[in-house]
């Protein structure tokens, strides 16, 4: 057993030494034949699948969390991570040696997801959303998170409307997607969280956040585990078949390819 481990260790070391240099990336069209990563169940995964076609089985790796995908990128396990632009920018701020390819992969709209046929709640939320768009509430929430520094935003300052008469509003999310949702200590902050809090207030209900994995969200809303899911969810035709969506609250959010800075030539 010990011999085996020693052998494996030497093998791993020599593999590390013999790592070969490759030509740098220039445009997103090159990504068709490269190893890519995305967070499981996200639009980034769908884009990468379309891009790779038949080769997706061997070239695409999907991870449970963005942090894992970015780690794989930094370690050279993949050449690019396909993800949403705003969270990608946050990674660039916090982590050295990464950059975003200048051409976006696609543009998307975000909306809140509901169980198919839950028209009553969809309508109520749409009404709340249009009021919040009109009276500047939405703009104020987006402005708060624009500069990429959330250290001054405290979860306890967000009003979850505790003890509301209308009962609880269960919202499923995946709190690793700043600036939209992020777990801080024992609470949550983010654009989606503040927006849902404002919606809950308008519906006279108490907001309850259920933090789960992104790929579990559609299941949670369709089995009625939560009333709605709000996690920077892109509206796609495929998803529309399985759930209902509110009106868009983010229009034109870009999907981008994150790559290593030393692996990219503009």
């Amino acid at each position: 057993m010990k011999k085996f481990f020693a052998f494996m260790l030497i093998l791993a070391l020599s593999a590390g030494i013999c790592f070969a240099d490759e030509a740098k990336l220039k445009s997103t069209s090159q990504l068709k034949t490269e190893k890519l990563a995305a967070q499981r169940g996200t639009v980034g995964q769908f884009i990468a699948e379309d891009l790779l076609g038949d080769k997706k089985g061997t070239l695409l790796t999907t991870y449970e969390k963005y942090v894992d995908a970015i780690a794989a990128l930094r370690q050279g396990k993949v050449r690019a991570v396909i993800m949403d632009e705003m969270p990608a920018k946050r990674f660039l701020n916090e982590v050295d040696g990464l950059t975003i390819m200048s051409e976006p992969m696609s543009e998307e709209n975000y909306a809140i997801g509901f169980r198919k046929g839950n028209t009553e709640l969809v309508n109520a939320v749409n009404k709340a959303l249009s009021e919040m768009k009109a009276d500047g509430t939405m703009d104020a929430i987006f402005a708060k998170y624009l500069n990429g520094d959330y250290s001054s935003i405290k979860p306890e300052d967000i009003d979850f409307n505790k003890g509301a008469k209308g009962g609880k509003l269960f919202v499923g999310t995946e709190a690793g997607f700043a600036p939209y949702e992020l777990k801080v200590g024992t609470g949550y902050i983010g654009i989606d969280v503040e927006m849902c809090a404002a919606i809950a207030k308008k519906l006279d209900r108490e907001l309850v956040i259920e933090n789960m994995n992104f790929d579990a969200l559609p299941m949670a809303v369709s089995t009625n585990k939560v009333d709605m899911i709000c996690a920077g969810i892109t509206v796609t035709d495929e998803r529309k078949e399985n759930m209902d969506f509110s009106d868009n609250y983010v229009v034109g959010a870009k999907q981008v390819a994150v790559v290593r800075a030393d692996d990219y030539e503009k």
């Binding site: 969390k65 916090e94 709190a175 997607f177 259920e210 933090n211 579990a216």
Partner: peptide
């Protein structure tokens, strides 16, 4: 969706983006 020890580590990862 339970924040057990492993998930707590992942929550910190998401905060600091450090793997």
């Amino acid at each position: 969706g339970i924040d057990d020890l492993t998930r707590a580590g992942q929550n910190i990862q998401a905060l600091t983006l450090e793997h």
